[in-house]
């Protein structure tokens, strides 16, 4: 009933420390994609043809997917100190909606991620990135949907695992294969058959394909529909699981 209002309250709470140190927060999870852009992407320009005629157009959407993955998948780390200190328990003891406690946090992470994505896209423009403006807008929406799914799952795992070192190990075990099998670094078309098949089972790879089509302005490309469907299903499943867990743990 009051979930919307409660979500706003939790979102505002989560945003406050972020807004006090915007630069630190933004840089925190941006480092990895930025390093890839600076230290890896130039290699691709030396491989003409492999990524289509414009390597930036191919590489940057993948980096945004990586950014979304790192910013949201690691979000659970922000919850763990509050679980240990008692702040999470204090909020659970209030009448605030259980789903709002989850959604408000996820929305804060999405906000940070979108700002980071905009910064990266803007920074790449002088280097020759020429994306379709409508496509970029749609790509950011798709990233946000992916982020809702991944972020919710991250909080879910954090609440179940409860301790940082296990959570870190779990994240490593999950995010590395998701990145390697997503084709953000090199085209998965180059992969042997079994590896390509594995990458098709990775939801992130479909989102990456959709992001690339959107940046190129191919809004009707089949990969856009597939990537969107995959991201929406992931988000819905995560939210159902997440809110249910919040109710049970409360």
């Amino acid at each position: 009933m009051n979930t919307l209002r409660d979500t706003w309250i939790v979102y505002a709470r989560q945003m406050r420390p972020t807004l006090r140190r915007p630069v630190v927060t933004a840089l925190y999870s941006m480092l990895q994609p930025v390093l890839y852009l600076v230290l890896f992407a130039p290699l691709l320009t030396g491989m003409p043809g492999a990524m289509g005629e414009d390597p930036w157009q191919w590489f940057v959407p993948g980096m945004l997917a990586m950014l979304s993955l790192f910013t949201t998948a690691y979000a659970g780390f922000g919850l763990l100190p509050e679980v240990r200190s008692g702040a999470h328990e204090r909020l659970l003891a209030t009448p605030v909606s259980r789903s709002a406690l989850l959604l408000g946090r996820v929305l804060r992470d999405i906000t940070v991620m979108l700002v980071q994505a905009l910064v990266i896209v803007a920074a790449m423009l002088p280097f020759g990135l020429r994306p379709s403006p409508v496509g970029v807008l749609a790509a950011l929406v798709l990233l946000a949907v992916l982020g809702v799914g991944l972020g919710t799952l991250s909080y879910l795992f954090a609440l179940v695992v409860k301790v940082e070192y296990l959570f870190a190990a779990l994240l490593q075990a999950v995010t590395m294969p998701l990145i390697l099998l997503s084709g953000v670094l090199l085209p998965m078309d180059l992969a042997p058959g079994w590896l390509y098949a594995l990458s098709r089972a990775n939801p992130v790879s479909h989102v990456v394909d959709a992001e690339r089509a959107l940046f190129a302005g191919d809004l009707t490309d089949p990969s856009v529909a597939v990537g969107t469907a995959v991201a929406v299903v992931l988000a819905v499943v995560a939210l159902v699981l997440g809110t249910r867990t919040m109710r049970r743990l409360a």
Partner: peptide
Amino acid sequence: GFVGQGHGAGFDQLARDELVTQGRCYG
């Protein structure tokens, strides 16, 4: 009202902000 064994404010939250948020959580 519930005051738990632990400390209820988020470590990076300002005291006043947490207090206002708490009030907002109660409607």
